Simulated scan of single mutants.
Amino acid sequence: MAKDAPDPTLVTALEWLVRLRDDKASDADRRAFQRWLAQDAAHAAAWTKAEGLWRRFDVVEPEIARLRRSQAAMSRRRALAVGGAALIGAGGIYALGRGDLMADVVTDVGERRTLVLADGSSVELGSHSALSVDVTDRGRDLRLFRGEGYFDVAADAGRPFRVHAAGGSIQALGTRFDVKHVDGLVTVAVAEHAVAVRAADAPAAIRVGQGWQVSYGRDGLGGLVRADLEAVEAWRQDRMVFQDVPLRRVLVEIERYRRGRILLLSGAIGAIPVTAVFDTRQPDDALQTIADTLPVRVLRATERIALVYPAW
């Protein structure tokens, strides 16, 4: 078995869990499962581990509903700022995130929302995003806690327009630009004019001009690269566009449009390049296409949990 490959016995146990929880499971299925279970002590151990994983999510799902109701009530109380309900996943456990508590605007999974600010600027927020807005006489400061936003900035030389994300900042220089903050990485792509990007702890900002993009995150600030603006802005037309993008990054992106988690069980397949166009409104279809065209399998362990592992 390859070093990064998942335990095949555990995968089989998870497959049995899926099959037996199905309403269509027959007595023959249950008898076959009992035979498999009795074949080897390792099968019983894997079954216990799989049940533990399953219980973990069964316990959490009622809490998901409670948190979403709580967030919806909070948003109604903040109607002047506009609000919404959102669900986030971290380490396999769903919880209300710090961004949700501090944000003025939160979009749900699969939701897009356009805001017009008091200064005339507009922001289009993508799926599963959280944003706060602070517009004063001295400046316009927005904080993107997670997700993606497209910013169309109204000219106002006396009040700088800044977007803060992951400890860094993006200052508009009279412009339209996209900011994506996902999985600890911030990517800024400029559609018009320019922005000044400063990563966390960086000594100075760098200028990013029209048609260029830059990323920053845990590893610091990356270099300027040409932006494929059609691909960058595809989410605004309900599309995800990938060209030779590693599978692990594709799954992170698909997860933003799907309730629940997508768990990559093997690092060995994470680097497989993907070139595709998917509909953000059909994330499960995207997963199925990946399973049909790449040497991987996708197991839907629950409605909220999808496991991706090698087909070999």
Rank of each mutant, 00 (worst) to 15 (best):
V11D: 02
T12N: 07
E15W: 02
W16Q: 10
R21M: 07
D29Y: 03
W36T: 02
A38L: 08
A41V: 10
A42Y: 05
A45I: 07
A46K: 02
K49W: 04
A50T: 09
A50Q: 07
E51K: 13
V59P: 00
E61G: 02
I64T: 08
R66H: 09
Q71I: 10
A73R: 12
M74Y: 14
S75Y: 07
S75C: 04
L80D: 14
A81H: 15
G84E: 08
A86D: 10
A95R: 11
L96E: 15
G97Y: 01
D100A: 10
D100H: 11
D104Q: 08
T107A: 04
T107I: 08
D108V: 07
G110F: 08
G110N: 06
L117H: 01
S122Q: 12
V123N: 06
E124S: 15
E124C: 15
L125C: 09
H128C: 11
S129W: 01
A130F: 04
D141A: 14
G147A: 03
E148M: 13
E148V: 14
Y150M: 13
G158C: 06
R162G: 00
Q171G: 10
L173T: 05
R176E: 13
R176T: 12
R176A: 14
K180S: 14
K180G: 09
G184R: 03
G184N: 05
L185G: 00
A191H: 11
A191Y: 01
E192C: 00
H193Q: 14
H193F: 01
A194Y: 02
A199M: 09
A199T: 06
D201N: 15
A202H: 09
A202K: 01
V208D: 03
Y216L: 03
Y216H: 14
G217R: 11
R218A: 15
D219V: 07
G220R: 06
G223C: 00
A227R: 00
A231C: 10
R236G: 10
V241W: 09
F242I: 00
F242W: 00
V250I: 06
E253Q: 15
E255S: 13
R259Q: 13
L265C: 08
I272G: 07
A276H: 08
A301V: 05
E303N: 15
